[in-house]
Design a binder for these strands. Structure first.
Length: 125
DNA sequence: AAGGTGACTGGCG
DNA sequence: TCGCCAGCCACCT
C-alpha cells in the first residue's frame, strides 16, 4: 500500500516529532499492520499487538484505532476482540457500521454476533 | 511528572 | 460458556 500513509489524525501528527522519525510510534505501526489485513479477514487487538512485538498492548491498539484517521483506507473494521465480536465504542466508527462493512466483504456473523476465527481469521505470512 | 482512561486479555469460579 | 477481576500498555491530562 503505497499511498502515503501520511495523514494521521491531528493528535497522532503531533506525536510525530523529528526525534521519533527513526522509530515509528506505536500508533503508527498499528496503522501499517491494519493496512495489511486482507478484505474479508479479521484480526484481534491482541493479535496486532503481538505482531508489533508487544503482546500485552492490546488496549493500546484499540486506543490507536480510534485516534487514527481512516479516510485513507485504513480498514479499522477488520479488527475485533478475542471472541470475534465487535467491541468498538468509538463514536465515529460505531458497531453498526463495522458490522455492515464486514458483511459487505463476506464476513459472516453467527446468531450471537460472533465471527468464526477459523473461517475469517487472518494470519500474516 | 504522576495519575486516569480504555475499540483488551487471560485466568478463575 | 459466561461473567468478573486484575494486570498491562499507550495516551492524554
Amino acid at each position: 500500500v503505497s499511498p502515503t500513509p501520511g495523514t494521521l489524525s491531528g493528535r497522532e501528527a503531533v506525536n510525530r516529532s523529528p526525534g521519533n522519525d527513526r522509530q515509528m510510534s506505536f500508533t503508527r505501526r498499528v496503522y501499517h499492520v491494519v493496512q495489511r489485513i486482507p478484505p474479508g479477514r479479521i484480526i484481534s487487538y491482541g493479535g496486532i499487538a503481538a505482531l508489533l512485538g508487544t503482546p500485552r498492548a492490546a488496549r493500546g491498539v484499540g486506543q490507536a484505532l480510534c485516534t487514527l484517521a481512516d479516510e485513507h483506507g485504513t480498514p479499522w473494521w477488520r479488527v475485533v476482540n478475542r471472541n470475534g465480536e465487535i467491541s468498538t465504542r468509538c463514536a465515529h466508527h460505531g458497531p453498526l457500521l463495522q458490522r455492515m462493512l464486514l458483511e459487505a466483504e463476506g464476513v459472516q456473523f453467527d446468531r450471537n454476533g460472533r465471527i468464526d476465527w477459523k473461517r475469517f481469521g487472518w494470519e500474516p505470512g
